[in-house]
Design a protein around this nucleic acid. Sequence first.
DNA 1: ACAATGATTCAATAAATGTTGTATTATCGA
DNA 2: TCGATAATACAACATTTATTGAATCATTGT
Lengths: 109, 109
Amino acid sequence: MNETQAVSALSALAHAQRLRVFRALVVAGPEGLTPSILADQLDVARNTLSFHLKELAHAGLVTIEQQGRNLIYRAEYSRMNGLIGYLTEHCCQGGVCEVSPSSAICTTC
Amino acid sequence: MNETQAVSALSALAHAQRLRVFRALVVAGPEGLTPSILADQLDVARNTLSFHLKELAHAGLVTIEQQGRNLIYRAEYSRMNGLIGYLTEHCCQGGVCEVSPSSAICTTC
DNA sequence: ACAATGATTCAATAAATGTTGTATTATCGA
DNA sequence: TCGATAATACAACATTTATTGAATCATTGT
């Protein structure tokens, strides 16, 4: 993951509704969800949701599969891992990652 | 870290210049940097930098200390760890964190 | 006290982002 | 083929965010 990709992913997640959409997809797991279900679940207008899903897809955080007239959206875990890796790498460069051990995640630095 | 804080932090980092500013502060370590040095180093106008630093500070990602007429900005590692923790938690809820082992960071899930 | 320096604030403008309503495309079932 | 459904695309508008130049505030050194 490079800087451009990281900014793109961060930007996609930097919105409460999109973060909730992504979270719902993570919770849904490999089965994924259709836009209709997501719209009902999160109480968002369909066209607005479509816009946000497009943003997430553009950032590579979700994948789309067509099944008949439904689209199945799924969280792209590897992309999220890539983002977390990028942040961890940059966070840890100073070697002060263990400032707050209780909340530290990266056990390798 | 709650959703609002996460969105705030993500939003602060979702900008190439701010990400570079934060990165420079991480690299600088505990000594921190002054806005002048940052402005020279990253080639940004001082008032623009001031604006971005305020955004980072508002998101809790940097701290400010006054030393004479200089201000010392430092990366707030615990906040970054909190953000990474939040993302990891939500990424791992589906239990599919090991989709791409090579890039996986969170070794506990 | 005064000039110089470091940094921020403010107003104005430009650019990007988010939302809504309407229209369009594609698929399904009778 | 026709009506209904799932979803997106488009245009218009409102809102937010980013940048620039000029002005302000605080601190230092003479």
